[in-house]
Design a protein around this nucleic acid. Structure first.
Length: 292
DNA sequence: TTCGACACATACGT
DNA sequence: GACGTATGTGTCGA
């Protein structure tokens, strides 16, 4: 098997040669499902307010752009975007409990604490030292726009839209289309009217409530080192956290789910050797200029 | 080496 | 089909 260690997230392996094939920046082929997330790790108990019944959150997460599975490893590129969507549910429970119930957890003082709302956060961890690696989120304007810390997003249980929905709903501007796709990401307003006035829904932040968090145009922040001192690849994990915001204004991490170790290639020219662009219009390929 | 900045190319949405 | 946009990556120079 030839080495295709130089294949990047926008590349597809060519097993017949050592030349990698690259899709154009705006090609739909840039969308592909990334590394799977492991089963949810519970950090804090969650109880129904009325009955104290224990609940078990399950985080649903999918990466839809930015990672390739090559030679048994998940590889992303620091210069390229990745896209991630996430939601959660409670095991064996429907949405009804959000319309009718309140939720508690155990605060740091060991006393029950009322949960006002749940939220999702994204972070990354270096496998060597378990330290956090910062992520940034760009706008579509990239360097001409703002660069933000990815936001913590209040959320209620929902269903992750299909990979295809994520692909076709990216970079939509037409207001009618935006409206059409909003049902995949936001709670229908009918759900509010059906809700009990003292359910957890009434303590969510004002405004539309997300059923799915979408992290678009994500990148690993610089600077960080891509290689360990031994020059081996460094490994990272992307982690999604489920947070509970409590009635006293504090928040606590209830649970998390994360990827297996992934490699994030840096900007070194050696990571971009020998590539061939596939043109959709001409079907021809063109080589990049020789590296010196 | 690494980075920010700018440049180019090309498929996408309208 | 024209036009503006979004994004992978080539390149320069600190």
């Amino acid at each position: 098997v030839h080495s295709d260690s130089a294949f990047g997230s926008s590349f597809t392996a060519d097993t017949k040669s050592s030349i990698r094939k690259r899709f154009a920046p705006r090609s739909g082929e840039q969308f592909k499902i990334g590394p799977p997330f492991d089963t949810t790790t519970l950090l804090k108990p969650v109880f129904l307010g009325a009955t104290n019944e224990a609940l078990y959150p399950i985080l649903r997460v999918r990466i839809d752009r930015g990672f390739d599975f090559v030679n048994n490893e998940w590889i992303g590129y620091k210069r390229n975007y990745f896209t991630l969507v996430s939601t959660f549910e409670f095991k064996n429970k429907g949405f009804d409990i959000f319309r009718q119930e309140t939720f508690n957890t155990i605060a740091t003082n060991n006393k029950p604490a009322r949960i006002n709302f749940f939220a999702v956060n994204i972070t990354s961890i270096c496998c060597d030292d378990n330290l956090e690696i910062k992520l940034v989120q760009h706008t579509a304007k990239r360097e001409h726009g703002s660069q933000n810390v990815p936001s913590i997003c209040a959320i209620v249980p929902g269903e992750i839209p299909s990979h295809e929905i994520i692909k076709v709903s990216t970079n939509i501007r037409n207001p009618n289309k935006i409206l059409q796709f909003s049902k995949f990401f936001y709670l229908d307003s009918k759900e509010y009217s059906k809700a009990s006035s003292n359910s957890i829904l009434s303590t969510y932040p004002q405004g539309s409530i997300s059923t799915v968090v979408r992290y678009d145009r994500m990148q690993f922040a610089s600077p960080f080192h891509h290689r360990s001192p031994t020059l081996n690849n460094k490994y990272f994990r992307i982690r999604i956290e489920l947070l509970a915001y409590l009635s006293d204004g504090t928040s606590t991490i209830i649970a998390y789910s994360e990827t297996p170790p992934i490699i994030v290639r840096g900007r070194a020219p050696s990571n971009y050797l020998k590539d061939v662009v596939i043109s959709k219009t001409t079907g021809m390929t063109s080589s990049s200029p020789p590296q010196s």
